[in-house]
Design a protein around this nucleic acid. Structure first.
Lengths: 155, 155
DNA sequence: AGTGAAAAACAATGGCG
DNA sequence: CGCCATTGTTTTTCACT
């Protein structure tokens, strides 16, 4: 379902993922288009799902969330049922920002954000490890975050 | 600069990071507040920096970005100058969505999104490895992404 | 494809209970 | 904080090129 995007669309997407608070008129100035056309194109991009949604990006520090960790999880006995349970649990855990299955020796990579190390310990020891499917957990803590914008590279 | 947040604020933040396209009236319905109060609280949250910005979240697939990888980078001779260069380069690379320094045996963890494996190879072999500071690079490719919302857990 | 102007929806303020 | 009214923006639609 890949709609053909022209230069205007790409510029519009780039501007919107950078700052979705811009008005259509402001966007129009940036990409050289009238506000009405910006509106029309934006609607199309929303309908086709290229723009998935709009989100407020919050400041973790202000909210007391000081610990970001990357947690590699290895599953043990590969029962399908247990693996399914694990995935559902991970999806439901608010502390988990991202969860991916990986190539290599680690099955899952989780990005976790919590208040403090105690909370991380709780998540690992009381939530992840008790899962039947989980064989091993190895966590690395982010000491410094250089970049965290999650902006897609739009050629 | 931690402003005291009450239950309304927390609910408002949760709603906004989930869906920033909601109008103040709609937000008011969700959290049981009048539109005008939503407007005032939202402004305060923006001014204090708890809401950092608004962003459009785009669909990587539609944009032909099929490969997500986690790349662990180990630096070699720890010359401050080379490490600084490395950090600046990483910050400037559009393919890098996130970059963190980590505890453990890997110095940096990069989350990289690119079009295909060839592009990943290019980034690693032609951009990262030639850096003087870089000693070793190990990448894991995300085969499946269960969750990628990057929503902060608001207790 | 595009513009510009009118109409509709919305956000932001102020006053009052 | 709710409610209401007002004002100014902004989005969306429409007629037209």
């Amino acid at each position: 379902m890949s709609i053909a995007l022209d230069g205007y669309d790409v510029k519009l997407l780039a501007a919107l993922q950078e700052n979705a608070a811009l008005t259509n008129a402001e966007l129009g100035e940036v990409i050289n288009l009238s506000a009405s056309q910006v509106s029309r194109r934006r609607q199309k991009l929303e309908e086709t799902g290229i723009i998935r949604r709009y989100r407020a990006s919050l400041d973790p520090e202000s909210l007391g969330l000081t610990v970001t960790a990357f947690v590699g999880v290895t599953l043990g006995a590969h029962s399908k049922e247990n693996a399914r349970k694990f995935r559902n649990m991970v999806k439901a855990m608010p502390e988990v920002q991202e969860a991916h299955t990986l190539t290599g020796d680690v099955d899952y990579m989780l990005k976790i954000v919590v208040r403090d190390l105690k909370a991380l310990s709780h998540v690992i020891n009381d939530e992840l490890l008790p899962q039947e499917a989980v064989h091993n957990v190895r966590s690395s803590i982010a000491m410094d975050t250089l970049k965290d914008d999650n902006l897609l590279p739009l050629v």
